[in-house]
Amino acid sequence: MTIAAPARQITAAAARADGVWKVYGTGEAQVVALREVSVELQRGRFTAIMGPSGSGKSTLMHCLAGLDSVTRGQVYVGDTQLTGLNDAGLTKLRREKVGFIFQQFNLLPTLTAEENILLPLAIAGRKPDRAWFQTVIDTVGLGDRLSHRPSQLSGGQQQRVACARALVSRPEVIFADEPTGNLDSRSGGEVLNFLRQSVIDHGQTIVMVTHDATAASFADRVIFLADGSVVDSLDDPTAERVLDTIKRIGADH
């Protein structure tokens, strides 16, 4: 038996947390947000992270995305180890390997939809791939709204612009934090479909934090967190199975 080369193992996952602890405060006021969490987010898959409020799901995502530091353990995006990177390193990582979709305030009000979409590339000083850009905006269906400013777009349209912005730089992984939290169910369904479609069509890796079982059902896999630990996971979930799992976890904890 040979020891597998670690590099191989690392590249197998788009992002990976390895024995991650996240502790806020010290002594009496100490709060453990993540407790020895190890997850592997597979390349080309759509992973949802679920859990009740305070379960640590957002913290986990922030740590994986390099927005927050971990107390103990290791975090990798692709083959880059995040722990120990300084601000410049993290900025470069976010610029080159990560895409974000937030619940709201995704867009700069001063820029048009197109400028917003191309902003990460502009910041990185990269030339957009026109064909890919066209593909992306076709996918999200924004062709006729590119010159509009965010204030002239509906909430759903704004989130679609945000999706397009995350997709256009073809990041290693896209982190979506409750991307449909502020949308009605129809617009939310549309956004989730684009995300799903980009995984299927373009092999994009997406990690989404949500507390909505329907949203989670669009994912390939759901990871459940409770009290800072991974407590369960589901492959090819349906809304019913997700709800059942949540109920069960609620009973256990």
Binding site: A65, L67, T91, R94, R95, E96, G99, F102, F105, I123
Partner: peptide, 16 residues
């Protein structure tokens, strides 16, 4: 603040 956070999240460096 939020906009700045967003810009930083999508890769705008400190100097920029």
């Amino acid at each position: 603040t939020r906009e700045l956070g967003l810009l930083r999240a999508i890769g705008l460096g400190r100097m920029a």
